[in-house]
Structure formats: C-alpha cells, structure tokens
Amino acid sequence: MLECQHLTKTFQGVTLLDNVNWQWPATGRFATSAVGGERPGVQVVALLGASGAGKTSLLRLIAGLDHASAGCVRWDGQDLSKVPPERRGFALMFQDFALFPHLNVQDNVAFGLREQGQSRAAARATASQALARMGLGDFTQRAVTALSGGEQQRVALARALVTQPRLFLLDEPFSSLDTDLRTQLRSGFLNDLQANWDGTASGISRVLLVTHDEAEAREMASHAWRLSAGALVSLW
C-alpha cells in the first residue's frame, strides 16, 4: 500500500513538504457519503489544504512526475524513487480532465492500452467496450471537444480504468464545475468506479482525492488529512 517516508520537497527556497510520514489507511472502509450512500469496492482518502499548501506537489511526487528533495514514496514496501511515472500504475485525473484534443473519444480511452503494448485494433475494441459500459457507446468517434463536462469526465475515467491502475489520483476534479453538476458527477464517478469492481479485495478502487473543499471531502472520503505548513494532520 501507499506510504510516504520522510518526504520533503522544497521549491525555489520554499518548503512545501517537511519530512512527511504518512501511510494509506489500513482499514478497508468503503466510501460512505452523502452523494449516494456506501459504495463497496471504492475507498476514497481525501487530502485537504489551502491553495499553495503543496497538495498538488504531493500528488505529483506520488505520481512520479516530480522528484522529492528528500525521502521517498513506497508501494507495498517498494521504494518508487527510481520508478518512472509510466511504470507506477497510478492514474491521474485533473480538473479539466486533460483529454487529448487531437484524439477522438475512442483513441483517448485506448491511449494507455496502446502504451501497454496492445495492438491498435485490440486497444480500440477494449476502449469501445469500456465506453459502452459507461453509456458512451455512441460517442466513440466524437471529438472530445464536442462533449459536455459530464461526458468528458466519464471518458477520462474510462481512460484511466481500462489501464487497471493500482491507485487513482484526483487533482480537484470537480472544482471547476457548478454546484448541481458537481454533486451529480461525484455520485456518477463513484458509481462508475463501483460498477467496475470485480468483487475481490485487490480490485478495490483506491482514490486519493486532492481538494480544498472540506464539504466535498466529507461527502466522498472515509479518511482525510489536511496539509498545512508542510505537515499532514489527520482529520477523520
């Protein structure tokens, strides 16, 4: 499981993370939330903090997109310092979902599968099945720019899910949306993750949610920490 050991990050003289020691909660509690009740197969942990507190920096360190000034990130005891992001098996989702505008919906979803060595045809077939499961079967050939916010989110989720990541890293994925759509998408997101669950303990979708919105964290996450002055404080 995920673990941070003595993690320190300084950027341009500012200490963003100061000797952070943290471990993914061992208890297997599922997400219980106000956005639709308990969802077996999904475990959400929230990371709260004010703007500039270093939440995204921590997320990037876990994803392997940045290097720590000191300390390391571990998974099941293995030091990931030398493991590049493409081999960590962690999927990232951003606020704007970061869909590739030069690829259509199907090829966006097939992107990660192609990187895993699948042929174009096989990757596209798997992508189409994943899209169909999410109710986007008719959207395969559409440009991603022609999708609504909710549709874009489901495409981004399908793109991450088909690669079967060990961990989802969500960087404020709902913060740019209006209140109604936000609630609807949170619920849809958890439902989609749950629908993807294969029923095994190892198949549980583990989500690390970075947000500055405590209400959102309370609705979605079973555990939460606050990042403040470079240190993590347990909230619940």
């Binding site: 590049p84 493409e86 999927a91 990232l92 989702m93 951003f94 606020q95 970061a98 590739f100 990187e115």
Partner: peptide, 18 residues
C-alpha cells in the same frame, strides 16, 4: 502544451519518448 495532459500520458504508461 497542457502540463496536465502530459502528466496523464506519463501515468497512462507513456515513456518520455512516447
């Protein structure tokens, strides 16, 4: 280029070259 898209590509398994 959006940094987010590049980061997503890397976490989806693309090497820097890919």
């Amino acid at each position: 280029q959006s940094a987010a898209r590049l980061a997503v590509a890397r976490t989806l398994g693309a090497t820097p070259w890919r």
